[in-house]
Simulated assay, not measured.
Amino acid sequence: MKPSYLTEEAISSFIATALAEDIGPGDYSSLSAIPKGKTGQAKLLIKDDGIIAGVELAEQIFKTFDADLQIDLLVKDGDKVAYGDVGLIVSGASASILSSERLVLNCMQRMSGIATVTHSLTEKILHTKARLMDTRKTTPNFRLMEKWAVHIGGGVNHRFALYDMIMLKDNHVDFAGGIRQAIESCKSYLKANNLNLKIEVETRSLDEVAEVIEVGGIDFVMLDNMDYNTMREAVKMIEGKFKTEASGGITEETLVDVAECGVDFISMGALTHSVKSLDISLKAI
C-alpha cells in the first residue's frame, strides 16, 4: 500500500515541475539531431547491486512526457537487482526517450540508493522490535521521492512535514519555558484549532523523561543522544506508556546496540542526506 502522501496530484505536480526545470522551452539537442519521426528502444541498465526504487515513477515520467511511449517493466519497486540486470525497456519516439531520460535516471539512481541503504540497515535489526525511520532531513522539493524510497526499502516514514504531527524538540521546549509548558500549550492549541495530531517530545535526560511521564497526554518520546545505559533506563521508566524513538548521531556501527536497548523506533537522517546513488544508465538498443 502506498503511503498517504503519494497522491496522484503530488506525483504529477513533481513530474511537471521537474520536466519544466530540465527541458524548459525545448530539448534542443534531441530536436536538432534526431530526425522527426525516428523511433527506437532503450534499456534501463543496472550497474550496481542493490534494491531498485522509482520504477513506478519512471513509467509515469515517460508517459507524462509522451503518452505514446511503451514501457516494458522487467522489475518492480523493492526488487533486489544486480550488476547487468535490465530494469525496463522503453520504446517509441527516440527524441521523447532522450528528453525524459535524465529525469528518470536522476530519480531512480537516488531513490534506489536510499532504498538499498534502508533495506541493508533494516536487516541488521530484525531480531529486535525496533523499526528504522526517516527524518525531515531531505532534499528540498525531492522529499516525496526520498521518503517513498525509504518506504520501498522497508523503513518507516516519520512525519512527512511540519503540518502532520507535533514534534516538540529541544528548541521548542527551551523557548516555551520547559517541557510542561510546551506540552500544555501544544494541547491547548490543538484543542482550540480542532486539530487531531500525534505529539512527540524530545528528551535529553532521565529527568526530562520523568517530567514527560508526569505531564502525559503525548504519543512518542524521543530519546536524543543518550548513551546505551541511559536509553535502557528511559525505556524501563516509560514502561510502554508511550512509543520511544532513539535519535541523534546513530550510525551503522551503533545501530544494533541502540535497537537492543528496547526502543520502538530509530530515526536516521543519513537515510536521505548521505546516501550514494545506485549506478543506473539508459542505453539505446
Results as ranks from 00 to 15, higher is better:
residue 1 M to Q: 05
residue 2 K to V: 10
residue 5 Y to D: 02
residue 5 Y to F: 15
residue 6 L to I: 15
residue 7 T to A: 02
residue 9 E to R: 12
residue 10 A to V: 11
residue 16 A to H: 12
residue 19 L to Q: 15
residue 23 I to G: 07
residue 26 G to T: 10
residue 26 G to Y: 13
residue 28 Y to V: 15
residue 29 S to L: 11
residue 31 L to W: 11
residue 32 S to E: 10
residue 33 A to K: 15
residue 33 A to G: 00
residue 40 G to E: 12
residue 42 A to M: 11
residue 45 L to G: 02
residue 45 L to F: 04
residue 47 K to Y: 08
residue 47 K to A: 04
residue 48 D to W: 10
residue 48 D to K: 12
residue 55 V to R: 01
residue 57 L to G: 04
residue 63 K to E: 11
residue 70 Q to Y: 08
residue 84 G to I: 09
residue 84 G to R: 03
residue 86 V to D: 05
residue 86 V to L: 13
residue 87 G to P: 13
residue 89 I to P: 03
residue 91 S to K: 14
residue 92 G to D: 09
residue 96 S to M: 05
residue 96 S to F: 09
residue 97 I to N: 04
residue 98 L to A: 04
residue 100 S to Q: 06
residue 103 L to Y: 10
residue 110 R to N: 11
residue 110 R to I: 11
residue 113 G to R: 00
residue 115 A to K: 05
residue 117 V to Q: 09
residue 117 V to A: 13
residue 117 V to K: 06
residue 118 T to P: 11
residue 119 H to P: 02
residue 124 K to C: 03
residue 125 I to W: 13
residue 125 I to G: 08
residue 127 H to D: 15
residue 134 D to Q: 08
residue 135 T to C: 01
residue 136 R to W: 00
residue 145 M to V: 15
residue 148 W to K: 01
residue 150 V to D: 11
residue 158 H to N: 10
residue 161 A to C: 12
residue 164 D to A: 06
residue 165 M to C: 08
residue 173 V to A: 00
residue 177 G to F: 02
residue 178 G to F: 07
residue 178 G to T: 09
residue 179 I to P: 03
residue 185 S to G: 15
residue 185 S to D: 14
residue 187 K to Q: 14
residue 193 N to R: 12
residue 195 L to V: 03
residue 197 L to V: 08
residue 198 K to Q: 06
residue 199 I to H: 00
residue 203 T to D: 07
residue 205 S to G: 09
residue 209 V to M: 08
residue 212 V to S: 02
residue 212 V to I: 09
residue 214 E to P: 00
residue 217 G to H: 04
residue 219 D to M: 05
residue 220 F to V: 01
residue 223 L to I: 05
residue 223 L to M: 05
residue 226 M to L: 15
residue 227 D to W: 05
residue 229 N to L: 13
residue 234 A to Q: 05
residue 241 K to A: 02
residue 244 T to G: 01
residue 245 E to A: 00
residue 247 S to W: 13
residue 248 G to P: 06
residue 252 E to R: 14
residue 252 E to I: 02
residue 252 E to T: 14
residue 255 L to K: 06
residue 256 V to Y: 11
residue 257 D to N: 10
residue 260 E to P: 02
residue 261 C to N: 04
residue 262 G to E: 06
residue 263 V to N: 04
residue 265 F to M: 07
residue 266 I to K: 00
residue 269 G to Q: 12
residue 273 H to M: 01
residue 274 S to L: 05
residue 276 K to W: 03
residue 277 S to T: 11
residue 277 S to G: 15
residue 280 I to H: 03
residue 285 I to Q: 13
